[in-house]
């Protein structure tokens, strides 16, 4: 494993996002604390509605205007506070320092422009140069994401490319300005499994080459196990557990993480009956008292329904934390 000592590249402290509606406010991102180091891959796992994508959008300050806003907290990139930046300063950060790869390449590429034009657009905005070199730099970016015959593909429209090729083109746009961190929001969900394997290997190789950090948002524990060094587990807008991947898989501290890992069908080993988590997660708009997982938790006690558990260390070195009364009582 890579050295992840020293100051983190991205540090999120006590981040809370509020959505105000007529029915009241709710918090899709509630008191998040996490950090990512250069060269590291942090996984964010959770089910739909747990606030994964809201977290990603708040990091680049692209939350839907009027509907949601960052209520409190701090996001620092290389020690610089992002929340205090003006909109024009933030535009410089997006794309050049923080890049994003979204789930569906079909919708993140503009069908009316060639792949080359879309890569050059990012380059032109962040480090302009003569048109000829822009094209060469765009070809270079395509070559880096292992697109065959980049000199020809650069003039292709998105509809002329296959799904995997399109997602590579999105990757080329993301890495074109050498960002320090890439936020990948379920980038392989729309790809076939063998193409997903290619794409994950590509991300790993790019990371080794450039030393960039990756924030990988997914619902798939298989990807976390294979790609990430550390993981953050989310439930109902809260981080319920975070720590190194190998430790969390070997020794999950939060009952939700434990049940979620046990509920995934395995390719090898025991078949039998799958463990299930009864009921369903609360909707983000639901008002929940106490621990949000308590109604589905097999270990829940009366205290769990009344008081929200604090986030505490699950291990002596402070790397592995969880928010559960069982861990508090240990």
């Amino acid at each position: 494993m890579r050295d992840i000592q020293g100051e983190p590249l991205l540090k999120v402290t006590d981040l809370t996002v509020e959505i105000s509606t007529k029915a009241g406010s709710f918090f899709p991102v509630n008191g998040h604390n996490f950090s990512v180091h250069a060269g590291e891959t942090l996984g964010i796992v959770g089910e739909s509605g747990s606030g994964k994508s809201m977290t990603a959008m708040s990091l680049v300050r692209l939350l839907p205007k009027h509907a949601a806003h960052i209520r409190s907290g701090s996001i620092t990139l290389n020690g610089r506070e992002l929340l205090g930046l003006s909109e024009s300063e933030m535009r410089k950060v997006r794309g050049s320092e923080i890049a994003m790869i979204l789930q569906d390449p079909q919708t993140s590429l503009n069908p009316a422009f060639t792949v080359g034009e879309q890569i050059s657009e990012a380059l032109r905005l962040h480090n302009p140069g003569p048109r000829r070199t822009l094209r060469e730099r765009a070809i270079d970016a395509l070559r880096k994401v292992k697109v065959a015959a980049p000199e020809h593909r650069i003039d292709a429209y998105p509809c002329e490319l296959s799904g995997g090729m399109r997602q590579r083109a999105v990757g080329a746009i993301a890495i074109s300005c050498q960002p320090k961190i890439i936020i990948a929001d379920e980038p392989t969900t729309s790809l076939d499994v063998t193409v997903q394997a290619q794409y994950l290997r590509l991300l790993r190789e790019l990371q080794e080459e450039t030393g960039m950090a990756i924030l990988f948002i997914t619902h798939d524990f298989g990807i976390v196990a294979n790609l990430c060094q550390r993981v953050v587990v989310m439930y109902y807008g809260r981080i319920v557990e975070s720590g190194p991947v190998d430790r969390i898989f070997a020794n999950p501290a939060h009952p939700y993480t434990e049940a979620l890992i046990a509920a995934v069908p395995k390719l090898r080993g025991q078949k039998g009956r799958l463990r299930t988590i009864e009921g369903q997660p609360p909707a983000p708009t639901d008002v929940v008292e106490g621990c949000p997982f308590a109604p589905r938790c097999e270990y829940a006690e009366s205290r769990c329904f009344k008081e929200l558990p604090p986030t505490v260390n699950a291990d002596s070195d402070g790397e592995h934390t969880a928010s559960c009364w069982r861990v508090v009582g240990r």
Binding site: V193, Q198, F249, K266, R268
Partner: peptide, 18 residues
């Protein structure tokens, strides 16, 4: 089978990338 990611970081697998 090799592309199907197992939710177990300890599981050894030979990676065959098509």
């Amino acid at each position: 089978l090799s592309a199907a990611l197992s939710a177990d970081p300890d599981e050894a697998r030979d990676e065959i990338i098509l």
